[in-house]
């Protein structure tokens, strides 16, 4: 099959609403969406604590998170696999080869990105922002929200970057989800499988979806970072 034929077939699959294809896409968005939703609140709190509070071990944590940034997805996958396997300490949860296991893997992957980029964003907020809020009588929570708002573009950039990583990630999803049809087969694991079978058309169709998604995220990221540039005082 030539590249052209495969691409042509791929487009017809995509536009024709091929059911199994769209189910795979749906699983990808569901799993990564849940993962990002679960990872963001604790990551933002952690980033805030690292940027605005002083406590022992803070520097250590900061360097720990930047180290975690470069841990390959397969290592995360393997570690969680060993934890979640029936032989592992969390085996009784019976989570291996479920969507929950994929979510867990993606949360672990997204967390350090969110913390590291969120930390950078929150740290760049002027100290006076917090002080002004507090001295105007704002509660701790209101001042916290204000600082988040002041760094919203940086935080959004962190969110997009983390989402971009986990939705395209194949190693951990493959290991933890098991690539089960209609359950844990998402876009990247499906691409891996389809190409291994020589079904290039479906691989290309899914690749196109990922590509579109990646360029959308990238465009948003650029837009957001441009915005962020304007808003610095």
């Amino acid at each position: 099959m030539t590249l052209w034929e495969a691409t042509d077939h791929a487009m017809r699959l995509l536009l024709g609403g091929d059911e199994s294809l769209w189910r795979i896409i749906g699983i990808s968005f569901k799993v990564s969406g849940i993962a990002i939703l679960m990872a963001t609140p604790p990551a933002v709190l952690t980033a805030f604590a690292l940027a605005w509070l002083r406590f022992p071990g803070r520097r250590l944590l900061i360097s720990l998170f930047s180290t975690l940034l470069s841990v390959p997805a397969v290592v995360v996958g393997l570690t969680l696999y060993l934890l979640l396997s029936n032989q592992g300490p969390l085996g009784d949860w019976r989570l291996l080869f479920t969507q929950s296991a994929m979510v867990a893997g993606q949360v672990v992957l997204a967390f350090p990105i969110l913390v590291a980029m969120g930390h950078a964003a929150l740290q760049s907020v002027d100290q006076r922002a917090w002080e002004t809020a507090r001295t105007l009588g704002a509660s701790f929570f209101k001042a916290f929200l204000l600082v988040l708002r002041e760094s919203r573009f940086g935080l959004l950039a962190a969110l997009l970057a983390a989402y971009g990583r986990i939705i395209a990630e194949v190693g951990a999803s493959m290991m933890l989800g098991g690539n089960i049809l209609d359950y844990t087969r998402n876009i990247p694991t499906a691409i891996a499988l389809e190409t291994s079978k020589g079904e290039f058309a479906q691989g290309i169709a899914l690749g196109v979806v990922l590509l579109l998604l990646a360029s959308t995220l990238n465009g948003l990221l650029h837009y957001v970072q441009g915005k962020g540039g304007v808003s610095t005082p």
């Binding site: 002027d126 006076r128 922002a129 002080e131 002004t132 204000l146 708002r149 002041e150 808003s231 005082p233």
Partner: peptide
């Protein structure tokens, strides 16, 4: 009030 007042974004 800071010497250079901070304006929120």
């Amino acid at each position: 009030l800071h010497q250079q007042p901070y304006m929120f974004d």
